[in-house]
Design a protein around this nucleic acid. Structure first.
Lengths: 98, 98
DNA sequence: GACATATTTAGATGATTAGCTAATTATCAC
DNA sequence: GTGATAATTAGCTAATCATCTAAATATGTC
């Protein structure tokens, strides 16, 4: 969960996730709209993968990235719900990592 | 919105927000549970303030911090909803900052 | 095998970040 | 005003981060 928020802290990575809304895209296709080098984009993909927000699948010369919407939703909605004080399980404290 | 995600990327800051769930707390009270120096916590508060996630109010010698739940919700739910493609207003693209 | 294409790894750099201690500012109580 | 308490600012450091170019690793085509 820490990794999810860390991954989401970069605008480029958030935009990559948005691009994946409509369906899987290759690393190249995902990189095209951005004005940064391929290696830089590759590093962004690695962060998203590490956070389990995307799944990478090799297809010939390409690598196809799939959005893992459920992971994104669980992290964000889970966090938001922890503030609702009523819709939430009596889980008084979590997130003591660092 | 970029600032919100940036602010949320740190576990300490997320925990500060959690502490503020039940009501306003002073800088000192917010710092107590953490094993870092007061100045460091003060810097965290500044980031949260900058993201508009908290409101600071001076009260005598103390500074009382209030959670701005609406800002948090709008940012996170807004982002999540942009993936739902159906529950969402036709706002095709946003977040082009950086 | 030689070449082209797609992506990642290696290695370096400048900027940002979280952390600290020491000093400063603000407020309250005598 | 002195002294105590609460919080922030100043100044520094080590670690992390986003970025780059060049090189390496597939994979497919001829």
């Amino acid at each position: 969960m820490n990794k999810v928020f860390r991954a989401l802290s970069d605008p480029t990575r958030r935009q990559v996730l948005q691009l994946l809304r409509k369906g899987p895209l290759s690393a190249g296709e995902l990189s095209d709209p951005f004005d940064v080098s391929k290696p830089t984009m590759s590093a962004h993909f690695a962060v998203l993968k590490e956070a389990d927000l995307v799944h990478a699948e090799k297809d010939g010369k390409s690598v196809i990235y799939h959005l893992k919407l459920s992971v994104l939703e669980e992290a964000l909605l889970g966090f938001i719900h922890s503030f609702d004080l009523g819709t939430e399980t009596p889980k008084p404290n979590e997130e003591t990592e660092r």
